[in-house]
Simulated assay, not measured.
Amino acid sequence: MKIFKTLFLFLIIIIVTIMSLSYTKIHANSQVIPKKQIKTAVLLFTFDDPYISLVRKGLEEIQNKNTSSVNFTFYDGKRNQEIQNTLLDSVLQSDYDLLLLNLVSLDQGTIESVIYKAKQKNIPIILFNTVPFEISPIKSYNKALVISTDAIQSGILQGNLVVNKWNSSKNDIDRNGDNILQYIMLTGPENITVTIARSLYSISTINQSGIKTQEILSKTCNWDEKCAEDSIKLLFLSYGKNIEAIISNNDAMAIGAINALQSYGYNKGDNSTYIPVFGIDGIPEAIDLIDRGIMSGTVSQDPNQTAEALYVVGMNLANNLNPLQGTNYKFDETGVTINMPYHEYIPRKQ
């Protein structure tokens, strides 16, 4: 009997020991293994563009909240594609896990070169803030995609702003009484999708509402405030009495136009010396001018939403997941482009 009890106790000890080891093993395997920090190179076309600066700020705020998940390093292309190419080559020699690229130039050669280089290094890449004309190079690499703003929507909404302003203040705007809106268009870089879509759809929306338009002149200023200011100062000397509106592809150029108008005493609060100016982006300075009645309107896209999309989709790519996993984003008809929406900015009551 004593021997039986001894054997029984010994058997219990063995069973308990095995169960304990199994428990430890199971729980060790069920622990969440921390994902590595994703080193991300962010190449911007310039650091001094107001909207892009806000996207950068949004990414920095995301990094501060997710230090174990991501580290962003920012590079300034200084509005020069050769400088950006040199930066990209340097980045590709480092150990980055993800590339976020806001290109200076969107010509086919640049797109093909950038995608080829990323593909050779097997690094996921997201082009953002505009859609290239030629997307076949992007489709050729399964770790490449585009996150852009909806340029067509922005043009339509801007056109609606002009229509509403004309309908509510036609007597003030139609200075020569010919029932035609004479305007100057300030545009982004030539031959890129955003410039073309914003310019085309803003005017077509105005025309479709029944308002006739006449373009006095179109000036390319590549998103730059100072270029717009200098251009409008010069153009005002020749066309000042004929300008009934200034329609700008972005807020920075619109602000430049306002600075120029104010140098001639316009847009300082007197309706008799006021030329409507419209922008796109919804940057804080433009919003302030609109709230104060100095600028007529803007179409806003939340840069924090763009930053969030870059982060979430980028983390999926870097971790070899479906880029849309766990998101509500959708690709457009290209199959590789996510478009971020715009909305009309509604002025605050003073």
Score class of each variant (00 low, 15 high):
216 I>M: 03
219 K>D: 06
220 T>I: 10
225 E>D: 10
209 S>Y: 03
228 A>N: 05
248 S>Q: 05
188 G>H: 02
223 W>T: 00
214 Q>E: 09
221 C>A: 12
190 E>H: 08
231 S>F: 04
233 K>F: 08
206 I>A: 02
203 I>Q: 00
169 S>Y: 14
177 G>Q: 12
199 S>L: 00
229 E>S: 12
179 N>M: 15
217 L>I: 10
180 I>A: 10
209 S>V: 04
173 I>L: 13
247 I>G: 05
213 T>R: 03
188 G>Q: 01
234 L>C: 08
232 I>V: 12
174 D>V: 14
204 S>L: 07
165 K>A: 13
192 I>C: 06
247 I>R: 05
210 G>V: 02
193 T>R: 13
171 N>C: 10
212 K>I: 00
183 Y>G: 06
234 L>W: 01
167 N>M: 15
170 K>V: 15
188 G>P: 02
250 N>P: 03
219 K>W: 04
205 T>Y: 06
242 N>P: 00
210 G>D: 05
232 I>G: 03
185 M>R: 13
214 Q>C: 01
226 K>N: 15
181 L>F: 10
195 T>F: 02
161 L>H: 08
165 K>Y: 15
204 S>Q: 10
232 I>C: 06
235 L>T: 05
204 S>E: 07
203 I>R: 00
172 D>L: 15
234 L>G: 09
178 D>V: 13
243 I>M: 06
164 N>K: 14
192 I>L: 11
187 T>Y: 00
197 A>T: 00
243 I>Y: 02
170 K>N: 14
206 I>K: 01
196 I>W: 04
176 N>P: 07
210 G>P: 03
214 Q>A: 07
231 S>G: 09
247 I>P: 02
188 G>E: 03
191 N>F: 13
186 L>K: 03
228 A>I: 04
181 L>Y: 08
194 V>W: 02
170 K>S: 14
241 K>M: 05
218 S>T: 08
196 I>T: 10
207 N>Y: 01
205 T>C: 03
210 G>A: 07
238 S>E: 11
215 E>H: 00
183 Y>C: 08
248 S>H: 02
206 I>R: 01
244 E>Y: 07
242 N>I: 01
164 N>A: 13
180 I>W: 06
230 D>P: 07
186 L>F: 08
189 P>A: 14
242 N>C: 00
237 L>D: 13
248 S>E: 05
246 I>H: 06
241 K>P: 02
226 K>P: 02
196 I>G: 01
218 S>C: 04
161 L>W: 06
162 V>F: 11
209 S>I: 03
215 E>N: 05
235 L>F: 14
224 D>K: 10
237 L>S: 14
230 D>Q: 14
170 K>D: 12
178 D>G: 08
209 S>F: 03
240 G>K: 03
166 W>V: 15
197 A>S: 12
188 G>S: 07
164 N>L: 10
168 S>I: 12
212 K>N: 11
219 K>G: 00
205 T>P: 02
166 W>Y: 15
